[in-house]
Amino acid sequence: MIIRGRAPLRVSFGGGGTDVEPYCVEHGGAIIGSTINKYAYCSILPKENDQITVHSLDFDMTVKYNAKENYVYDGKLDLVKAALNALDINQGCEVYLQCDAPPGSGLGTSSTVMVSLLMAMAKWKGVTMDAYEMADLAYHVEREVLGISGGYQDQYAATFGGFNFIEFHGKNDVVVNPLRIKKDIIHELQYNLLLCYTGNIHVSANIISDQVNNYKKKETDAVAAMTEVKALAYAMKDELLKGNLNSFGKLLDYGWNSKKRMSNKITNPKIDELYEEAVKAGALGGKLLGAGGGGYLLMYCPYNVKHKVAERMEKAGGQLADWNFELRGAQAWTMDSNRWDYQDIKVQIPEGRFDFKL
């Protein structure tokens, strides 16, 4: 038997940073975003021994453990070890991990990998959890057990999937509001958006730490910026539901300018140049995805200038990505491993079935 877990990566439109403690505990936070058709995958092949072998296909890394040992979090595939502990996996297996985007891309990769791991392991163990329980567990393992800096949004976005307005009312008090957006609006929004890789990998922990410190020190501009970012998330939700997409695009610009005031580490000259080139070519607004410092830029461009924006961003060193929205959340399924034995594949073609005559 092969058990697979898959979770979608996400793009956030507004509210980023307000889902991070202590701001969300003291004031409440709000995020608007959607998942996209780029994924984190986990495959598990159970074994009849105590050996656990983990293969990271993206990093060409293999690490081996014993199912009976006490895991040490030493920076080598700690997400896997923490997930094994969380679901009390005490049987040997092979685990394969693969993600469609690198760490530091701003698409929530580490949290999405965690969700795919837990989905596959829960399926294997026969553990039933609803979406809230799964997202809560993923947050607990990543943020509290491993101490990885970040907010709440990524685990919930990956688990629930689709367009959501997520509110954070306090510690472990999260409400996911699925947005019922007309299909025509979703199609038009996707057509008018560009996803551009900046070429920089960010270190989100450093940026989040700086943002949190600015808030704790009550730096007036940083605190005001967080309040603005939260308010703009509500405004984006309203404009998106109404289908006022050009207004939505302009709100992205307002949100980006507010977010940059939360920490001086959020942007850099390369990112600013890409953004400015896009606006000069006709983009109404956009934002850097994730904590900042690198990763992907999301730009809203009216359809008649989108090609010009794309050309200017590529000339400035940006790398455009092919993508679309994904409305489904995390999933897990099983397959008979014998059907995927590639060592001795034999296919018999019925005689005459493909005898075409021109």
Rank of each mutant, 00 (worst) to 15 (best):
A231L: 07
A224H: 12
G249W: 06
G147E: 06
V141T: 11
V174Q: 06
K216M: 14
S204I: 08
E228V: 11
E21D: 07
I3L: 09
A231D: 12
K346H: 14
G170T: 07
D221Q: 15
G249K: 11
L241T: 15
L288R: 00
K38C: 05
T334N: 09
K68W: 02
L240D: 05
F248I: 06
M119K: 14
N257P: 00
R6F: 01
L137M: 08
I166R: 06
D238K: 15
G17C: 03
G317M: 01
L87R: 12
N257M: 13
C301Q: 11
G285C: 02
D58W: 04
N192D: 12
M1F: 05
M236G: 00
N70E: 15
I44W: 01
N304K: 05
L179C: 12
G92M: 10
S116F: 02
N192A: 04
P102K: 15
M114N: 08
L251S: 02
K230G: 00
I52C: 01
K68V: 02
G29R: 12
K287W: 04
Q155N: 00
G104W: 10
A281N: 06
D344G: 10
K237R: 15
Y156A: 10
N338F: 10
H140N: 09
F168P: 01
V305F: 07
Y215A: 09
L117G: 11
V115Y: 04
K357C: 05
R312T: 07
I345W: 03
R10Y: 02
C196A: 15
R328T: 15
F248K: 09
G199P: 10
I201G: 08
N177F: 05
Y197F: 13
D136S: 12
G199Y: 11
L97F: 08
Q348A: 13
K242H: 14
I31E: 01
L195S: 08
D74T: 06
E277L: 07
K230T: 04
L251F: 12
Y303K: 15
L288E: 02
M1L: 10
S110H: 10
S263N: 12
Q331W: 04
L107H: 11
G147H: 09
I181W: 07
K38Q: 13
A278I: 04
A231G: 08
K64D: 11
G199R: 08
L251K: 13
G92H: 09
T112A: 01
A310H: 07
Y65C: 01
N324I: 04
G14C: 05
H187F: 12
G28E: 02
A291W: 06
N66H: 11
L298V: 09
L297K: 06
M114C: 14
E326R: 10
V145R: 10
K38A: 08
S263H: 09
Q331N: 11
L118F: 01
P178Q: 13
G150V: 06
A235E: 14
F325I: 15
G292Y: 01
G282L: 00
G108T: 09
K280T: 00
K217E: 14
P46C: 09
A101H: 11
D336C: 06
V203L: 13
L77G: 08
A281T: 03
F325D: 03
W256H: 09
G295N: 07
K308N: 13
M236I: 10
I207G: 05
D253Y: 13
Y234S: 14
L194Q: 10
T62N: 05
L298A: 14
L194K: 08
D238E: 15
M299F: 13
N49M: 03
N164H: 05
D130F: 05
D60N: 14
